[in-house]
Design a protein around this nucleic acid. Structure first.
Length: 420
DNA sequence: TCTGGGGTCCTAGGACCC
DNA sequence: TCTGGGGTCCTAGGACCC
């Protein structure tokens, strides 16, 4: 049977997460900031109405925030990840097949689920709200790209009330005519500009474009997008996400870092985190890259650089990752630079149980594996930061800021919601 | 003063091989 | 002295997504 896609999208996800545990925020303008409390990454509808843009630096909207008493939060990833699990678990009860597309979105295959899919969508919407407190919008259509558009319509038209089924392909043209080409999934700002120059401004004109022309200018991705708009499915539901191909841990510093010791501490800390991610996915890495950079906005003394190391044997052993990462910093460090951001990238990943053993390995892999298992288990039981590798340093004054983080209500006993 | 983080895929071009 | 053509693999950079 042909797939019918529902795209379920949490409304203003991070802002809504804050609201679920803080009813005082209901009806008020709420924004959530990125790491280091830098940019606005989520806004309640009220905050959007005040003209606070997505991705704008917080300092640029400080005036609006103060004048309108906007509630401001730092990102609370522990809370958002847990809320995401709850929503996804709830959704899984309403469909035989789904794909978790991002922290706040999932594609469901609704083929054969009900006679009236709009009603069925409403039922899903109500269940998620009741079980998790999260408001969602649902777009239903024969392809993912059209489901994305249906979701937009579900959100943007009051009559739809959060659920919209793009059912009759004959109606589609009227709707596509009103969608700007930049709002089509897969068309970014750059390609939108390029399309505009060729006279293609709406989703409808894009749908009707000549296929060979689009292939020559935009490659196969462009062709797929056009077919999807025509109702021809090019992107199937991915139920089992393929294994990760790379893992990155990177952060902006809370303050500029100038000494090599601090830069190495920070990189060691990121390497530790990267190792944990690796082990959680049962992966090992063959290649480690470290990058450092000064502020993007410091035009005078700009310095971006990276160092890539081919590891002698695939590993997820933290001390090994730390030592190579620290060595890379020695290559990258420049005296007199104010480093503002750095990161560790692990790539050329493979499954741990399939890994190629090196003949002359100096490390007893079985032993280190048990050691890392023990460390991970103990760390999970201790309060954050209580168990650390020496290389991570003690003071960590470079740490990223989260000055307005709410409680991690759902994942920490000491931060439970208190009902007074 | 203050501008996020983590991914994927595609393509073009170079290196290398026969 | 003459100096082809086709294939694969890898990498860097670009574009996109949330």
């Amino acid at each position: 049977m042909k797939e019918i896609f529902a795209l379920v999208d949490c409304n203003n996800f991070y802002a809504s997460c804050e609201r679920v545990f803080n009813p005082r925020l209901e009806g008020r303008a709420v924004v959530v900031l990125s790491n280091n409390d830098g940019c606005v990454v989520a806004r309640s509808n009220e905050a959007k109405a005040l003209g606070i843009g997505m991705g704008v630096p917080a300092f640029k909207v400080k005036g609006i925030i103060e004048k309108n008493d906007v509630e401001v939060f730092s990102s609370n990833y522990a809370l958002y990840a847990d809320m995401s699990h709850r929503v996804m678990r709830t959704l899984s009860t309403s469909t035989p097949a789904m794909e978790i597309y991002s922290i706040d979105e999932a594609f469901l295959n609704l083929a054969g689920c009900a006679d009236n899919l709009t009603d069925y969508g409403r039922k899903i919407q109500a269940t998620v709200k009741k079980w998790t407190g999260m408001p969602v919008s649902i777009g239903i259509a024969p392809t993912k790209t059209l489901a994305k558009i249906a979701n937009r319509i579900a959100k943007g038209t009051p009559q739809a009330d959060g659920v919209f089924y793009l059912k009759d392909l004959s109606d589609i043209d009227n709707l596509l005519d009103k969608i700007a080409v930049v709002d089509v999934w897969g068309v970014g700002h750059r390609n939108a500009r390029k399309l505009k120059r060729a006279g293609i401004k709406t989703a409808l004109t894009l749908k009707n474009v000549d296929i060979e022309w689009i292939r020559s200018k935009f490659g196969v991705t462009g062709v797929k997008t056009v077919y999807e708009l025509r109702g021809i499915c090019c992107y199937r539901l991915e139920e089992n996400p393929p294994a990760k191909k790379s893992i990155t841990v990177s952060r902006s510093f809370g303050k500029a870092v100038e000494s090599i010791d601090e830069l190495q501490e920070a990189i060691a800390t990121y390497a530790v985190r990267a190792g944990e991610k690796l082990r959680r996915e049962n992966l090992v890495a063959n290649v480690l890259t470290v990058f450092v950079r000064t502020s993007y906005f410091d035009k005078q003394k700009r310095y971006f650089n990276s160092e890539t190391i081919k590891l002698p044997s695939p590993t997820n052993y933290t001390p090994e990752l730390i030592s190579y990462a620290i060595r890379a910093v020695e290559q990258l460090y420049r005296k007199g630079c104010s480093f503002k951001k750095a990161g560790v990238l692990l790539s050329s990943l493979e499954l741990q149980n399939k890994m190629q053993l090196t003949l002359f390995d100096e490390i007893d892999r079985r032993k280190t594996q048990r050691l890392m298992q023990a460390v991970d288990t103990i760390k999970a039981k201790l309060p954050e930061g209580n168990l650390r590798w020496a290389a991570e340093g003690l003071e960590q004054s470079w740490r990223t800021h989260f000055k307005r983080r709410s409680h991690r209500y759902t994942t920490r006993w000491d931060e439970l919601l208190v009902v007074a």
